[in-house]
Amino acid sequence: MDSAPLTLGQTLRLGLIGLFVFFGIWLLLPTAGLVPPSFLPSPIAVAERVATLTTEPFAGATLPAHIAYSFTRFIAGFALAALIGIPLGLMMGWFRLVDEIVSPIFDGLRFIAPIAWVPFAALWFGTGIGGPVMIIFAGAFPPCVINAYRGARQVDRRLVEAAEMLGTGHFRMIVDILLPASVPSLVAGLRVAAGLGWQSLVGAELIVASTGVGFMMVQAQANVATSTVMAGMVAIGIVGLAIDMALRWTEASIRRHRGLDG
């Protein structure tokens, strides 16, 4: 097995080959009549539909407006998950008493799929912003807690012992030792949480929203507008990739700054 690392140029070439094959097969299937265009529009038709949706409303708004609605909900749910999940995970990892109290409840809830909360979101919030935010929170919350917990547990015990010998209080230890040491793990958790939260948002909008990319896709499916459905999928993928790249860059920057690479 060849384990030699690939150069950047080789990686780019292989990636381009993969994209070429993928789009080539996609273009061939409807163009050659192997599948009907109503079932699988060509990439050219989807690209044209994306361009059209940027200026022409569908399901009450243009594609950028639907993306803005979705992103607003995502930010709300993701921020709520981080603001609650990170402190909770740090406290669980730092204080054994908190861990013993919270872990049984958390371990039971974290295995419930975010989409399972959709019926409650619909009952409690209807089609308002609260329902999707609740589903995003359900998807993003567990990774925030788990990675914060791991970050707290991986703190160098020698630093803790040295601080205790100097009589450092809990608050100073948390601020000066726990938080700085946990940052790489926290950012890694946020990246996972963002991916799960964005996926959960789209699932929620399919059911409990009256705007957003997911809602637009449902309306397109009801009208058998396959190219519009796929345009929504493209938008979801691009926005999700942008979110992940931003967090990946942040994670890499922090690791380089702290000398954790290599």
Rank of each mutant, 00 (worst) to 15 (best):
G24I: 05
A61L: 08
T11K: 15
A148V: 01
R157H: 10
A242K: 09
E48F: 10
M233H: 03
I135C: 01
G197V: 07
F58L: 09
S182G: 04
I135V: 13
L28R: 04
Q10W: 06
T31D: 07
G126W: 08
A181L: 00
T52Y: 09
V229K: 09
G169C: 01
A113E: 03
L8N: 06
T11C: 07
V21H: 11
Q199P: 00
L34Y: 13
T11Q: 14
F23H: 06
T226Y: 11
M165R: 09
A76E: 12
L186N: 00
V160E: 10
T31W: 12
F215S: 02
L6N: 01
A116I: 07
R255H: 12
I136A: 01
L34C: 06
A209Q: 06
S227K: 15
V175P: 00
G130V: 02
M1Y: 07
T52P: 00
A82E: 02
Q10R: 13
E164I: 04
V46D: 04
V155K: 01
V160F: 09
I136P: 00
T228Y: 15
Q10K: 11
C144E: 06
I135D: 00
A138K: 02
V118W: 11
N223W: 09
I44G: 01
P41E: 10
G189I: 08
T7I: 00
A32Y: 11
A76G: 04
P114I: 08
M134V: 00
A82T: 12
A235I: 09
G131N: 02
I17Q: 11
I17Y: 15
I236M: 13
F20T: 12
E164F: 08
G33A: 09
A65T: 14
L241F: 15
V218C: 05
L123D: 02
T31Q: 14
A242V: 14
T55L: 10
V229Q: 08
S182K: 05
L29M: 14
L178M: 12
T226G: 03
S3F: 09
P142S: 05
P64K: 10
